[in-house]
Amino acid sequence: MNKIHHTKFIKDSAEQLGFHYCGIAKAVKLDDDARRLEQWLQQGMHGNMHYMENYFDLRTDPRKLVPGAKSVITLLLNYFPSKQQEQDIPKISKYAYGKDYHEMIREKLNSLLELIRQNIGDINGRGFVDSAPVLERSWAVRSGAGWIGKNGNLITKQQGSFFFIATLITDLDLIADDAFAKDYCGSCRKCIDHCPTNAIQANKVIDGSRCISYFTIELKDAIIPAEMQGKFEHWMFGCDICQDVCPWNRFSKPTEEIAFTPIPEILNLSTKEWESMSEEAFRKTFKYSPLKRAKYKGLQRNLKFIQTTKL
């Protein structure tokens, strides 16, 4: 009865905190995922993201992240914006329209942990938001949230794929949900056919070193490879092409999370206004934005690259 009560309490608490999905999986080593990740890294598909080579054992075994771990809780938070960018301006990925999600979701995870400890007991647990060595999409599938699409994103039947994934690993023994067993992509190839850099390969393999998001956010080199010239389709920060064309995202609904309210400048700044923006103005305007990850110089590099393409 305690497992039933504890499981229900956690799911109810997650909903009250604003998460639109909460699922649970047993904490086990992800052997199949470990083999796929190892092959992916060996093929160099992570590009210059060398941090992905670190903590391999931690990524594939939650019990090494949280000693005595018994349950992995997956939480989803919708970020689909209520407003879209104006036409013919530098494009920015929708996840970056509002405030930096890392800090906001981390606060929610800490609140959930505190509620669990207050109502269940002194349990051990750690929350993670995509910057830690956790295979969050694999755990999401195991928790029943959805399936991995051909574009590598977690897709749900109810709301598509525009959401953040958070993970809470705990030593609390809970009732696990059934894993999501079916793939609803079928014969659809829209994400593959529309990817301008051919980053989406067969069998749900994503060549991260060819992704527009990799070049515009992760790549810190002063120059973007010339072979990518003319392929960015005006994306300055990140890329949503494979999600925008996905039929399942017709079910996306605007988020109710105030923190994700679009920063006005993101919705309407023209190319000329971006070009003339000073570094000081950038830091002030985007102090709490994910855009700061690419930094001022990175965005100016990206902007120059896509403008050269247009010329």
Score class of each variant (00 low, 15 high):
Ile10Ser: 01
Lys284Val: 10
Phe251Ile: 01
Ser289Phe: 08
Asp130Ile: 06
Cys188Asn: 08
Val205His: 05
Phe19Thr: 00
Lys64His: 11
Glu15Tyr: 04
Ser161Leu: 04
Val129Thr: 03
Pro90Trp: 05
Tyr95Glu: 02
Leu76Tyr: 00
Lys272Tyr: 10
Ser252Pro: 09
Asn124Cys: 13
Asn124Val: 10
Tyr288Phe: 15
Phe56Ile: 10
Lys292Trp: 06
Asn119Tyr: 11
Lys99Thr: 08
Leu109Asn: 03
Gly152Lys: 01
Val141Arg: 03
Gly47Glu: 01
Phe80Trp: 10
Met277Gln: 09
Cys191Leu: 05
Lys3Ser: 13
Pro62Ser: 05
Ala202Pro: 06
Ile206Asp: 06
Pro262Asp: 06
Asp130Trp: 09
His234Lys: 14
Gln159Lys: 14
Trp235Ala: 00
Ala181Cys: 12
Leu311Trp: 12
Gly18His: 01
Arg283Ile: 11
Cys246Leu: 07
Asp183Cys: 07
Leu172Ile: 08
Lys182Cys: 08
Ser187Glu: 14
Asn119Val: 07
Thr271His: 13
Ala294Leu: 06
Phe128Asn: 00
Glu15Gln: 11
Ala69Met: 07
Asn54Tyr: 14
Gln16Thr: 10
Arg63Ala: 08
Gln243Asn: 10
Leu30Gln: 11
Gln300Pro: 11
His5Ile: 14
Val141Thr: 07
Val129Gln: 02
Thr216His: 06
Asp33Gln: 14
Val134Phe: 06
Glu86Gly: 09
Ile4Val: 14
Met228His: 11
Asn203Tyr: 13
Pro254Met: 07
Ile10Trp: 01
Ile10Phe: 01
Ala140Thr: 07
Asn151Val: 07
His102Trp: 06
Leu303Tyr: 04
Gly44Ser: 08
Pro254Glu: 10
Glu275Pro: 04
Ala25Ile: 02
Lys204Phe: 03
Glu279Gln: 15
Ala199Leu: 05
Ser187Arg: 13
Glu218His: 13
Phe162Glu: 01
Tyr101Gln: 00
Gln307Pro: 05
Arg250Glu: 14
Arg210Lys: 15
Arg301His: 11
Ser276Val: 13
Asp32Gln: 13
Ser276Arg: 10
Thr156Val: 03
Ser252Ile: 03
Ile200His: 02
Arg283Thr: 09
Gly121Trp: 06
Ile123Ser: 06
Glu280Ser: 15
Asp33Leu: 14
Asn124Asp: 11
Gly208Glu: 03
Lys3Leu: 09
Glu15Asn: 08
Met228Asp: 03
Asn110Phe: 12
His50Ile: 15
Lys284Gln: 15
Ile258Cys: 07
Gly230Ser: 12
Arg283His: 15
Glu53Gln: 14
Ile200Ser: 00
Asn203Leu: 10
Met45Ile: 12
Ala132Pro: 02
Tyr101Cys: 02
Gly127Thr: 03
Met228Gln: 13
Leu135Lys: 03
Tyr51Cys: 07
Arg301Tyr: 09
Ala166Glu: 02
Val28His: 12
Gln87Trp: 08
Arg35His: 14
Thr167Asn: 04
Cys246Asp: 02
Val245Cys: 08
